[in-house]
Design a protein around this nucleic acid. Structure first.
Length: 165
DNA sequence: TCCGTATTGAACT
DNA sequence: AGTTCAATACGGA
């Protein structure tokens, strides 16, 4: 039996994101599917109160980041990944709104200065974009780099935070 | 074990 | 200023 996540739509001005929750917290967040209506027509599932509470926090945090502000509160995260990836994601969360770092700086921050490319890989594997601000990581020369959700999103998020590319 | 990667910096035109 | 290239850590197959 495969691990099952409870899935909820997180409605924002930029579209309907999809949040997935495990027993322990937010496990995944997906960008809105382009050209598609709401990802989920709820079919009267019963959601534990715990998860409803998390979801409210998630949605509020999401809206804040999209508006270019730092969220007051984060939901608990239940991230599936290797130790290396988790340490990268932890470092990413230390980048405050409006700031940027390079892949090399992240690598140094986790004590593995040579692991610059692996950092890129971990960013791409980030299950919770936006809340874990992988979009604030640029290449060392200020170039935009890449983004799993599409470069348009990366540029949009950075623009909202007042970052010039 | 081999391959690709959201990199980097140096050494070249 | 643009191009090439090797080094490098990690994860997936």
């Amino acid at each position: 039996m495969k691990k099952q996540f409870l899935e909820l739509p997180a409605v924002t001005c930029d579209g309907n994101f999809t949040a997935r929750y495990s027993e322990k917290g937010l496990a995944e967040l997906n960008f809105p599917k382009v050209g598609r209506a709401s990802p989920r027509a709820a079919k009267k599932e019963i959601f534990p109160a715990k998860i409803c509470g998390w979801h409210r926090v998630t949605e509020a945090a999401l809206k804040n980041v999209l508006a270019g502000r730092a969220p007051k509160k984060f939901p608990p995260l239940d991230l599936a990944g290797t130790d290396f990836q988790k340490s990268v994601w932890r470092a990413l969360r230390k980048i405050s709104s409006g700031k940027t770092k390079s892949y090399g700086e992240i690598a140094r921050a986790i004590g593995k200065p040579k692991a610059v490319r692996a950092v890129g890989g971990a960013c791409g594997a980030n299950p919770v974009p936006v809340l874990i601000p992988c979009h604030r990581v640029l290449a060392a020369d200020g170039k935009i780099g890449g983004f799993s959700g599409g470069l348009d999103w990366k540029r949009r998020l950075l623009a909202r935070e007042g970052v010039k590319v």
